[in-house]
Design a protein around this nucleic acid. Structure first.
Lengths: 198, 198
DNA sequence: CTATAAAAAGACCACTTGGTCGGATTTACC
DNA sequence: GGTAAATCCGACCAAGTGGTCTTTTTATAG
């Protein structure tokens, strides 16, 4: 694999595990047995390096785990339920789970680095837009109650997901997941279309 | 005010705004016009310093804003609604809002410092216990539906609050708050007691 | 084989980090 | 006033930080 790819991959790994400010360029270089020269040949600075990681790796990761799974014409509530369940199940079985990458970076850079924040917020917006669209389509297709505020629902869903991933890291992730999912279903039941059929 | 108090106060301030690892002892000392000697006379280390801040300031702060307001014999759903609304309203009007302190620290120290994590988790647990108790009492008093899983509801509430506070920092905090609250009420409507009266 | 550029090495730099320590200065108390 | 303890100062240290720069290796095309 090309040096640049390896640098980005282990960069994301370490930044996720230790945070951006607590991970030095030397840490990454040591792990890959590379030199300063190799690093600064490919990247202008640590910040430039991180931004490229965001765009190349983080954005795709969020897309494949949180956005792509909810695209489709089925009931969005079902899709979202399964999507969250899958994502959390992966976290439960991951011994090195440190919460939602995106959420962690948001709180790490908030108020400290505007440039990086813009890139992170872009990803958040993409997720939000896709969620809203999915919910609106679901409403149009008769899965959701007509009175549901889709923007509000999207915000609520994103919030709860970010939060539960943080909470899962503190203790008993499996129990947290189970409890969260039960209440998510409860919430979904309250916004799904009341079937006036039969 | 005593030096030790000043150190702890501005310490919490800076750690909240810039994060623990990106705030140096010198930063704090410079802001207070104090010397290294003063600092290390009062505290053994930066970590010891932070732990004392957690126990003396953070714990009280969480208690007064998130725990104490939901104690009482009224409808817990109303109390929680008002509590969250107040906390978020304060954040909206705070130009220097960086999200929920507790949530931020959790994601910063997760997987990096077990000692500090234990102290943070303790606060989380206290919050959780109080929420569960409050909900159970509400169920007993006929405010909540009999089938509600109070532990699960507490996890869900904590998650969503942590998450929305993170989301609020990225953009449009006021809108995020409004949307969040509307869906929180929606959720609460689904777990409140179905009044079979009249 | 050779010329040329891409890629990587690693010594080096100025600066910051958490932490130490001997001494100076306040403060409290007899 | 004297004295002892509490408080604080600030020079100093080793280890690390992001970043630069010259040199060497490696690949590639003629």
């Amino acid at each position: 694999m090309a040096t640049m790819q390896r640098l980005q991959n282990t960069g994301l790994e370490l930044f996720y595990a230790q945070g951006y400010y607590d991970t030095s360029v030397d840490d990454i270089l040591k792990k890959l047995d590379l030199s300063k020269g190799a690093f600064y040949y490919h990247f202008d600075s640590k910040e430039d390096y991180f931004i490229q990681i965001i765009q190349n790796l983080l954005a795709r990761k969020i897309y494949s785990t949180l956005i792509e799974p909810i695209e489709g014409h089925d009931n969005p509530l079902t899709l979202i339920t399964n999507c969250f369940d899958d994502a959390m199940e992966t976290a439960v079985h991951n011994e090195m789970d440190y919460g939602c990458i995106l959420s962690n970076f948001l709180s790490e850079f908030n108020g400290k680095n505007e440039v990086i924040m813009r890139h992170l917020n872009e990803i958040v917006t993409v997720w939000e837009v896709n969620l809203v669209t999915s919910l609106q389509k679901g409403k149009f297709n008769g899965y959701l109650d007509r009175h549901v505020d889709c923007e509000a629902a999207a915000t609520f869903l994103m919030s709860s997901y970010f939060g539960v991933r943080t909470l899962m890291t503190s203790s008993a992730p499996s129990a947290k997941k189970y409890r969260f999912m039960s209440q998510l279903r409860q919430y979904f039941k309250s916004i799904e279309a009341k079937h006036v059929n039969s």
